[in-house]
C-alpha cells in the first residue's frame, strides 16, 4: 500500500483513503461544443500511458475529499511530488531531485 502526500492535508496518508482519477492536465475545452471530432477524441479518449514519469490525478476520497495532481514514476511506483489542483505542472527535474529517495546506497549495502 502506497503512502500518498496529500497537498491539502499536508501529510502522507495511506493509499486506501485515495482514489486514482486518470491522467492530469487535460483541461476540458472551453468551447467543447465546437471542437472537431479529432480534438474531442484527443481530449476524451487518447491517453499517453508513458513508462516513467507520469502526471496523474488523485482524489483524497476518504480524507479531505480534494482532487490533486501527482508526478509519479510508473516504473518504480514512486511519487516524485504532489500538488494542488489548478497549480501549474511542476518542473520534472526539480521534482525528481527534491523527492527522490537515495536509491543507490542503503545503509547496509556493500
Amino acid at each position: 500500500m502506497l503512502l500518498i502526500h496529500c497537498p491539502y492535508c499536508g501529510e502522507e496518508r495511506p493509499e486506501l483513503e485515495f482514489r486514482h482519477a486518470g491522467e492530469a492536465h487535460i483541461a476540458r475545452p472551453e468551447n467543447i461544443a465546437e471542437i472537431s471530432d479529432e480534438d474531442f477524441a484527443h481530449y476524451f479518449f487518447y491517453r499517453d500511458n508513458p513508462k516513467g514519469v507520469t502526471f496523474e490525478r488523485w482524489r483524497h476520497m476518504h480524507g479531505c475529499g480534494r482532487f490533486f495532481n501527482a508526478v509519479r514514476d510508473s516504473v518504480s511506483d514512486k511519487f516524485l511530488t504532489t500538488y494542488k489542483a489548478g497549480e501549474p505542472k511542476p518542473d520534472i527535474a526539480d521534482a525528481a531531485n527534491e523527492n527522490q529517495i537515495n536509491t543507490s546506497k542503503g545503509q547496509g549495502a556493500k
Partner: peptide, 13 residues
C-alpha cells in the same frame, strides 16, 4: 548473492 542496489529505506545486516 548479496544485497546490491537498494530501492527502499532499508538496510541489511
Amino acid at each position: 548473492f548479496l544485497p546490491g542496489t537498494y530501492a527502499q529505506e532499508c538496510a541489511s545486516i
